[in-house]
Every structure is written in C-alpha cells, then in structure tokens.
Amino acid sequence: MTKKKSESGGIGETLRTVLYAILIALVLRTFAYEPFSIPSGSMLPTLMVGDYLFVSKFSYGYSRHSFPMSLAPIDGRVFASQPERGDVAVFKLPSDNSTDYIKRIIGLPGDRIQVEEGVLQINGDPVEREKLGEGMVRSGGYPIRISEYLETLPNGVTHQIWERGDDELFDNTPVFTVPEDHFFAMGDNRDSSQDSRSQNVGFIPEENLVGRAEFIFFSNNGAARFWEIWKWPSAIRFDRIFQAID
C-alpha cells in the first residue's frame, strides 16, 4: 500500500513539474522572448535561411498578436512603444493576421516613402547608400549577380542591402504616405522581398507588431539532416551564433 502511494505521488509530482515547465515557457514566450526561424532570403545579407533568433515581445508592448494564436481579448496595444526606424521587426501579415513576416521598419506614421531607380526616398530626401562591392549568389538554384550597399537611414542607423539592379519590380514606386498607427517595412534583399511596397503586404498596423529581432541563437546551412550527426560541425554556422541583429 505504501509503495502504491509512493508511486502515485511520484507520478503526480512529475506531472506537476511538467505542467509548471510548460506554464513558465508559455509565459516567457508570451511576455519576454519568442524564438523564430528564417525561412526565406528576403532579409539577406542581414538574416540567412536557417538562422534561429529571439524576438523581444516587450519592445513594442503587447497586443492580441503577442499571445498564442492571437487569442487574447486585447484591443490595440498595451504598454505600447513605437519602433525606431531601422528596427528589424516581426509582425503578422495584415492580409491574414496570422502569417509571421520579418522585415526592417523603414517608415513611421506620417512619413512619405518612395523608391526611385532603386534609391529609397524618405520624406522627399534620398537615403544615403554606399556601394560595397558586387558578387554572385544563388537564388532559386540559379546564380545571380548582386550589388551590396551600406544604407544609412535618417536617424543614423546603418545596414547592408542587396540589389540585383535599379530597374526591378519595386525599384520605382509611387509615394506611400504612412497612415497613423501604421508602419512601412522593407526587406534588406530589396529585389527579392514582398514587403510594404507590395499590395500583398501594405502598411503594417501597430497592433500587428509581434516584437523586435534581437540576436541569433543558432544557425545552420541546411547541409545536415537532424540524424546526420557527423555532418553537424560543417553545417552549423558557428560565427553567427549569438550575433546581434542590427
């Protein structure tokens, strides 16, 4: 009888421990940091396919999208804080409010954003970009030539961007005036990014912001499957682990 009670108590204690662990993880994921993975090359060269990063949920305050499946009954944002120009942010795609996108915040409420011959214009002024060089990369299995630039936003934030050319699909746009409580986001891989320049994305409502990308905690190049342990050392990008996201 004592043995059965002991076994029952042990199972109950284990279940409680697992439940507490799940609750703690859920709280941390909701209010502190949430992990995300990068599935596409739209943010190259800043973020690579196979990067795993942490996003701070508290950076912009909380909305219903801060919670799993966006189920929280929150209207707007609480403890709201506006993103800074140049932040790399995760947000819910406005057209479905469920798909996660990650782009760079370029335009703030009231800004006028335009691209002319590949050069970003903010409020009528061209953004400074310095050419760093050219190179060949693979996209969709095919080699393409890209030019790499260092772009400097009006608030002094600098980041690298890629351009295939200055006459691609979104290299000449109308003027976009960012509405109140909305933001304009663009990918760093300018000619391979569906972002606010596209009707499929458009302006980002403030409540759709999920958080700010902070740092990469793991990265792999996809050359090794999970069970191919012997390939892990060559597949892991050790130089990107714990790299801050600028």
Rank of each mutant, 00 (worst) to 15 (best):
1 M>R: 09
1 M>Q: 07
8 S>A: 14
8 S>V: 05
13 E>S: 10
15 L>V: 09
15 L>F: 07
15 L>K: 05
21 A>R: 07
24 I>F: 10
24 I>C: 06
24 I>H: 03
26 L>C: 13
28 L>W: 06
29 R>E: 11
30 T>P: 03
30 T>A: 00
32 A>R: 07
33 Y>K: 05
34 E>W: 04
35 P>F: 02
36 F>V: 06
37 S>R: 11
38 I>P: 09
39 P>A: 02
41 G>D: 03
42 S>W: 01
44 L>R: 04
44 L>C: 14
44 L>W: 11
45 P>A: 06
47 L>Y: 06
52 Y>H: 09
53 L>R: 02
54 F>C: 10
56 S>Y: 07
58 F>V: 08
58 F>Y: 15
59 S>T: 08
62 Y>A: 06
67 F>D: 06
67 F>I: 08
76 G>S: 02
77 R>W: 01
78 V>T: 03
80 A>P: 02
84 E>P: 11
89 A>Q: 04
90 V>Q: 01
91 F>I: 03
97 N>W: 05
98 S>T: 15
98 S>M: 15
100 D>Y: 00
101 Y>D: 09
105 I>V: 02
106 I>G: 08
106 I>R: 02
106 I>P: 09
110 G>S: 00
116 E>D: 12
119 V>H: 05
125 D>A: 08
125 D>N: 14
129 R>A: 15
130 E>M: 14
132 L>K: 12
134 E>L: 15
134 E>S: 12
135 G>E: 01
136 M>H: 12
137 V>N: 11
137 V>W: 10
138 R>Q: 15
139 S>R: 12
140 G>V: 12
142 Y>S: 12
148 E>C: 14
148 E>N: 10
152 T>K: 05
153 L>H: 06
154 P>N: 00
154 P>T: 08
157 V>T: 11
159 H>F: 09
160 Q>I: 14
162 W>Y: 12
162 W>T: 12
164 R>Q: 15
164 R>C: 12
165 G>M: 14
165 G>N: 11
170 F>W: 14
177 T>C: 09
180 E>M: 13
181 D>E: 09
182 H>W: 01
183 F>V: 11
183 F>E: 10
184 F>Q: 02
184 F>D: 00
185 A>F: 00
185 A>R: 01
188 D>G: 06
188 D>T: 13
189 N>G: 10
190 R>W: 14
194 Q>A: 14
195 D>E: 05
196 S>T: 00
198 S>C: 04
198 S>H: 09
199 Q>G: 09
200 N>P: 13
202 G>R: 01
208 N>L: 04
210 V>S: 04
214 E>Q: 10
215 F>S: 04
215 F>H: 02
217 F>S: 11
217 F>Q: 04
223 A>Q: 08
227 W>Q: 11
227 W>D: 15
228 E>Q: 12
230 W>E: 07
231 K>F: 11
231 K>A: 09
234 S>V: 03
238 F>K: 15
240 R>W: 13
240 R>K: 14
244 A>F: 13
245 I>M: 03
